[in-house]
Amino acid sequence: MSLKKLLADFSAEVALCAMFAPDRYPFPAIHYEQNRTDMLRYWSEAKGQLKRDAALIPAIDAQIEEMFAAFDSGDRKKGVDTAMALWNRNIKQME
């Protein structure tokens, strides 16, 4: 899969985290664990292809970790805020 497609899919998964958090997914087929798995898979594949923005990988990894830690501990607001901060990085434009 191309880097642009991976980053677009990753961005969409981050947006789902921000919109629905773990307890508000509207459909049984879309749920937190699947969202988390997909997001981590897209990011794992994408970061291996990053060149220009490779220096951002540790910061993004830390934000992902912080977001999931917040959601897993029940801190919905912090999880959503972290997801929005990650999404606002405009990750679809990374190279």
Rank of each mutant, 00 (worst) to 15 (best):
T37M: 14
W43F: 14
K77V: 03
I64F: 01
N88Q: 03
A85H: 04
K5I: 15
A46M: 02
S11V: 04
P28W: 02
L6M: 10
K77N: 11
L40S: 06
I91G: 09
E95V: 08
F71R: 07
E33Y: 11
E66R: 15
A85Q: 03
E66H: 15
F68L: 11
R76K: 13
Q49T: 06
L16Q: 12
D81K: 06
W43A: 11
N35L: 02
M19F: 15
M94W: 10
T37K: 15
R52G: 00
F10H: 09
E45N: 05
P26V: 00
N88C: 07
D53P: 04
G74P: 09
W87N: 06
C17N: 11
Y25K: 03
L3N: 03
E95Q: 02
R52L: 13
A21K: 02
A62M: 12
R89K: 13
S44H: 07
A12N: 02
M19T: 11
K51M: 08
P28N: 01
A46C: 00
N88W: 04
D53Q: 11
A55D: 02
D72E: 13
L6S: 02
A15C: 13
K4E: 13
A59C: 03
L86S: 01
W43L: 15
I30V: 15
A46V: 06
M39N: 04
L7T: 06
A46T: 02
D38P: 00
R36F: 05
G48M: 13
M39G: 08
M94Q: 10
Y42S: 08
R52S: 10
C17S: 05
N90Y: 14
L50D: 05
P28R: 04
K5S: 08
P22I: 01
